[in-house]
Simulated scan of single mutants.
Amino acid sequence: MSGDLVVLVNPTARGGRARRVVGPVVQRLREGGHDVRVIVGASAEDALARARTAVAQGSDALVALGGDGLVHLAVQAVAGTGVPLGIIPAGTGNDIASALGIPRDPLAAAAVVAAAAGGDGTAVRSVDAAQVGGPGGEDRRWFAGVVACGFDSRVNERANGIAWPPGMAKYLVALVQELRTFSPIPFRITLGSGDGAEETEVIEREAMLVAVANTRSYGAGMRVCPDARPDDGLFDVLVLGAVPKGEFLRTFPKVYRGGHVGHPAVTIRRAAHVTLEAVGPGADVVAYADGERVGPVPVTCAVVPGALRVLVPA
C-alpha cells in the first residue's frame, strides 16, 4: 500500500474526545509515512457519502476515529470492497475494536494502523461482516458486531428521545423507565445454515431479549455472546427467555463478565442466517445493529464471510 489514509471522524464521540485526539492521531499516522486526509461530515449521511467517495477513489484504508457507531458507518463504505478498515477507539462503546484486539488508547491504535497500513499485508485480518434488513432483502445494511432486539433495544429507543442527562446517564434513566412497563416479547426466531439448505431450527418463545452476535460484546462491554468469533462464518444467537423482573435484574449485570450464559433461561445457538419476528401482544420491537437503529422487526441477518479487511496488531 502506498500510504494514502482517509480518517473518518465523529467529533462528538464520548463528549468530544475524538475531536481532542484528531491532531495527535493524524501526526502519529504521518510519522508512519502516510499521507492523511480527514473527513468530518455535516451529518451521518454526508460522512458516509464522503467515505464511499474516498473508497471508490482508491484510498489505501479508511480509518474510523470514534466509537462503534462510527465503525458501523465506516463498514457501510468498505465491506465487500477489499479496502481495509482501520479502527481508532474514541467512543463510549468500543466493542468492535476490543473484539479485534485493537488497543483502547487512540495513539496506540494509531500506531497499529500506521504499521499495518505500511506493511506487507500480514497485519490485515479478514473477518466476517453481516447484513441486516427486511426478510425480502429491503433496506439492507452491513453490521460488524451485534444485532439486539428486546429489552435492550427498547431502552435504546427511550434513550434516543431523552435530551438530558447526556452520555451514558441517559441510558440509565431509560433503563429505569423501561423496567416499569416492560413485559416479555413473543418471538419467532428462524435459524438456518445460510447455504440454501432447509432451516435448521425455529424457536418460538417469550423472551426478554434476543442478540445476534458476530462479535462477543456490545453496549460498552456487555459480553452477551462471550464465545462469538468474527471469523468463523457464523452468528452466536442468544435468547434470554421470560423471567420475573427481579430475576432479570439479578441476571442482567452478569453479562459484563459473560456469567449469564449458565442461567437456565438463556439459550445460545449458532447459525449463518437468522430471521427475527415478534408476534402477538407486545410485538412492537425495534432492532438495533452496532447500537444503531435498524427498524421494526421482522428482520433477517446473514453472515458474509471475509467481507471485511481490518488493520490489526501484527
Score class of each variant (00 low, 15 high):
53 T>A: 14
149 C>I: 13
262 G>E: 13
268 I>C: 04
151 F>S: 02
128 D>M: 10
192 G>R: 02
295 G>F: 09
300 T>S: 13
9 V>S: 05
190 T>H: 12
82 G>H: 09
68 D>T: 00
232 D>E: 12
217 S>L: 05
184 P>M: 09
239 V>H: 07
259 G>Q: 12
70 L>G: 06
264 P>I: 08
307 A>M: 09
78 V>L: 01
26 V>S: 00
242 A>V: 03
287 A>Y: 00
139 D>L: 12
263 H>I: 08
259 G>W: 01
267 T>N: 12
131 Q>P: 11
45 E>F: 04
93 G>R: 06
296 P>F: 07
66 G>T: 06
156 N>G: 01
208 M>L: 13
125 R>N: 05
95 D>A: 07
211 A>R: 01
91 G>W: 01
8 L>Q: 09
102 I>E: 10
165 P>M: 08
225 C>N: 10
218 Y>F: 14
301 C>Q: 00
219 G>H: 04
91 G>A: 05
109 A>H: 04
78 V>K: 05
154 R>V: 13
31 E>W: 06
286 V>E: 07
97 A>D: 07
170 K>R: 14
29 L>W: 02
272 A>N: 03
239 V>Y: 00
208 M>W: 14
281 P>I: 09
257 R>I: 13
100 L>N: 00
153 S>E: 02
11 P>D: 01
277 E>G: 10
18 A>R: 05
49 A>I: 12
102 I>R: 10
242 A>M: 06
21 V>N: 04
95 D>E: 08
253 P>S: 10
237 V>E: 04
289 A>R: 04
269 R>M: 02
261 V>Y: 07
89 P>Y: 09
119 G>A: 12
178 E>G: 06
98 S>C: 13
157 E>D: 15
193 S>V: 10
297 V>H: 04
74 A>K: 00
143 F>L: 06
179 L>I: 08
63 V>A: 06
297 V>M: 12
267 T>E: 15
167 G>F: 06
201 E>W: 01
